[in-house]
Simulated scan of single mutants.
Amino acid sequence: MSPAGTARRGIPLHLLGVGTALPGEPVDNEALSSRLGIASEWVETFIGTRTRHFAVDLEGGHVRWTLEDLCTDAADRALADAGVEPDDIGFLVLATATPDALMPTTAALLADRLGIGGTPAYQLQSGCSGAVQALALARALLAEGTGGGGPGLVVGGDVCTKHLDLRQDFRRLPPGALVNYVLFGDGAGAALVGAAPGPRTRATLTHVTHRLDGLGLPPGQRVEWFGAADLEPYRPAATEDYKAVEDQVPVMALEVRDELLDACGWPPDSVDHLLPPQLNGRMTQRITRELSHGLEWQDVSCVAETGNNGNALVFLQLERLLARIHPGQRALGIAIESSKWIKAGFTVEAPHA
């Protein structure tokens, strides 16, 4: 690898522990069909998502878990997995597209709930790429020594269903809005990361990258934040251009794959696992086939069981990866955000025995 390539990679980010949280029992397609009038066979055939978890009650529409609740559960599990106490945390970074409120930030509320005081608490507003952006920020803080001296707590989560009105007449919704009730789920994940390996280091993120790549392209997804002045009956809170997503995401994912391999100087056949973009069951299967064509990469996916829960996805994938990766093995992780076309990715290596 060239010196310039080495500089781009930055310091390794050592993964000390991971935890995740999903609200309630899984909601299957039969339950959605009964509640929303969507054919369960259509969901299975064309979307490929079998279950998802909702932070709101499917029947009454009331909130059962907040984002703060889910992030607290995930963070507690990550701390326990790493054997780290809250007092040891040097900083906190939280990525979400669906904060509980505009102010105070969910990051600040989470820090208070965990009892983490006197440390920086950052919140990033982003979609599926936000978790990777949060990992990149953590790496920069650790490299510069401005993170408070201890390991960083990186959290990602979303409560997408709070933007979906479960009390409306679903017969009046266009298909483009109705499908959101099938695609999305809620959840959170967290990781403890450090600049140096420790006795309980699970794996190392050797490269983390993200960048805007949608100049001139209209957004592929938009999530509204309604104030009292702009509420309109039957105006959808979340909209997607599914055709644009189908066209753009596979191409961008291939570009990220090649950039990651080049940045690390890894031959494709030296990689063992792939963490592909988690859009929905069917699209993720298609992208995985294209990314790993001719290669014996093991797919690490969760979206068919969890739904698309945004910033929780990378942590859910990492948790599954850590359960199956062997000493010395490598993995590529790719996340594509369609809101304004953000490409993100990371590489993982397990310690040698």
Rank of each mutant, 00 (worst) to 15 (best):
residue 75 A to L: 06
residue 70 L to M: 03
residue 239 T to S: 08
residue 183 L to V: 10
residue 23 P to Y: 10
residue 196 A to L: 13
residue 126 S to A: 06
residue 119 T to M: 10
residue 252 M to Q: 09
residue 130 G to N: 04
residue 98 T to A: 05
residue 209 T to K: 08
residue 202 R to T: 03
residue 280 N to V: 09
residue 347 T to N: 07
residue 266 W to G: 09
residue 236 P to M: 06
residue 278 Q to C: 08
residue 324 R to Q: 15
residue 34 S to M: 06
residue 63 V to G: 01
residue 8 R to F: 06
residue 224 E to T: 11
residue 222 R to C: 07
residue 51 T to M: 09
residue 351 P to R: 05
residue 76 D to M: 15
residue 133 Q to F: 00
residue 218 P to Q: 03
residue 63 V to C: 11
residue 291 L to N: 06
residue 4 A to R: 15
residue 25 E to R: 14
residue 148 G to M: 12
residue 173 L to A: 11
residue 311 N to E: 06
residue 22 L to W: 03
residue 79 L to D: 05
residue 268 P to K: 02
residue 271 V to L: 06
residue 315 F to V: 01
residue 309 N to K: 11
residue 67 L to G: 01
residue 137 L to R: 12
residue 49 T to R: 12
residue 64 R to Q: 11
residue 216 G to S: 05
residue 12 P to E: 10
residue 195 A to H: 07
residue 352 H to V: 13
residue 347 T to E: 05
residue 21 A to E: 00
residue 231 L to V: 13
residue 139 R to V: 02
residue 311 N to S: 04
residue 303 V to E: 01
residue 211 R to I: 05
residue 166 L to H: 10
residue 175 P to M: 12
residue 276 P to G: 09
residue 9 R to F: 01
residue 178 L to A: 10
residue 182 V to N: 04
residue 342 I to A: 09
residue 262 D to M: 11
residue 167 R to V: 02
residue 237 A to N: 12
residue 152 G to M: 12
residue 260 L to N: 00
residue 160 C to P: 07
residue 211 R to M: 05
residue 132 V to R: 10
residue 22 L to F: 00
residue 262 D to F: 13
residue 130 G to V: 04
residue 131 A to W: 01
residue 286 R to C: 07
residue 185 G to E: 01
residue 278 Q to L: 09
residue 343 K to F: 13
residue 329 Q to S: 06
residue 40 S to I: 02
residue 257 R to D: 04
residue 26 P to W: 05
residue 95 A to Q: 11
residue 265 G to E: 12
residue 188 A to H: 00
residue 77 R to Q: 06
residue 312 A to D: 00
residue 176 G to E: 14
residue 130 G to L: 02
residue 261 L to S: 10
residue 292 S to L: 13
residue 14 H to G: 07
residue 334 I to A: 13
residue 40 S to W: 01
residue 125 Q to M: 12
residue 245 V to H: 14
residue 318 L to F: 08
residue 238 A to M: 15
residue 210 H to A: 08
residue 322 L to C: 09
residue 61 G to C: 13
residue 55 A to H: 10
residue 238 A to Q: 15
